[in-house]
């Protein structure tokens, strides 16, 4: 891709994002004006300008905590992905496993994170492990379902064709079922990665040495809603960045969609 192409793509992207940008700016502006006119105290509702200024002053601490949250998110999600992939393949080859394990995973999804998070921290301490476990708990099942459903969505004619060519179960999986699952996998990935950030922050909130979750808890206890909101914006930015990464990964993994 040459420079002119990149510039054109960037301009096109900007034009498409313009309506959303305008509405975000309008909301912030309305908020600012409301705080200004109503004279509400900054400890109840800080203006966006104050959030930005205080956030900027605390940028070193915020960055350090954001990095901790990012580490927890990505390691938890990596563990979750690896487990979901291995288990989905096992289920694809041994359908009995599905009936044996799915009810257990469905129940795991009904557990309220509020109740589980403090317990997991109690059992495994303030380190990385409880965060990995909680992120995995939240994201594992959606990824597993996406993969299992994806394998099963394989075109019947393609299956018959491969069988007629003499392909066995293994070839059928690599040549048809795995590529067929890609769109499902990436749909699951885009959703799960956003859940993963929320889960990591929740895990930190329940007890951690570092991370946006514990930063938010401390800021709240110190009556600093401006810093709470600054951390919220940082976590939103983090989530959006990971979402964009997932979209980019799909872009590169499915070149036929671009043509």
């Amino acid at each position: 891709m040459d420079i002119a192409n990149v510039t054109r793509a960037a301009a096109r992207g900007l034009r498409r994002a313009a309506p959303a940008l305008v509405s975000v700016v309008l909301i912030l502006l309305g908020w600012e004006v409301y705080v200004d006119l109503s004279g509400i105290s900054a400890t109840a509702l800080p203006a966006p300008s104050r959030v930005a200024a205080q956030g900027w002053q605390a940028r070193a601490v915020l960055a350090e905590n954001a990095l901790a949250t990012l580490t927890a998110t990505l390691s938890g999600f990596a563990v979750s992905l690896a487990c979901a992939f291995v288990l989905s393949v096992a289920i694809d080859f041994v359908p009995l496993l599905r009936r044996a394990l799915f009810p257990v995973f469905v129940i795991s999804q009904t557990l309220p994170l509020v109740a589980i998070a403090p317990l997991v921290v109690l059992w495994f301490g303030f380190g990385l492990l409880p965060k990995i476990l909680l992120v995995a708990l939240v994201t594992f099942f959606p990824m597993l379902v996406a993969l299992v459903d994806g394998f099963e969505a394989t075109d019947r004619d393609i299956t018959r064709l491969l069988r007629s060519m003499g392909a066995g179960r293994g070839q059928l999986f690599w040549r048809a079922r795995l590529p067929s699952a890609l769109p499902f996998f990436f749909a699951g990935l885009r959703i799960s990665i956003t859940y993963a950030v929320v889960a990591a922050i929740f895990a930190e909130y329940a007890g951690a040495a570092r991370g946006l979750g514990i930063f938010i808890l401390n800021a709240k206890n110190n009556f600093r809603p401006d810093l709470v909101l600054a951390a919220v914006f940082v976590s939103s930015a983090l989530t959006l960045a990971l979402f964009a990464l997932a979209v980019m990964a799909q872009h590169f993994a499915q070149p036929w969609r671009r043509a």
Partner: peptide, 18 residues
């Protein structure tokens, strides 16, 4: 016995999009 006698073309083309 076995399939190495036949080459089969299904109703729809069944080309793999990937």
């Amino acid at each position: 016995q076995g399939r190495d006698l036949f080459a089969f073309m299904p109703q729809r083309d069944a080309l793999m999009p990937w």
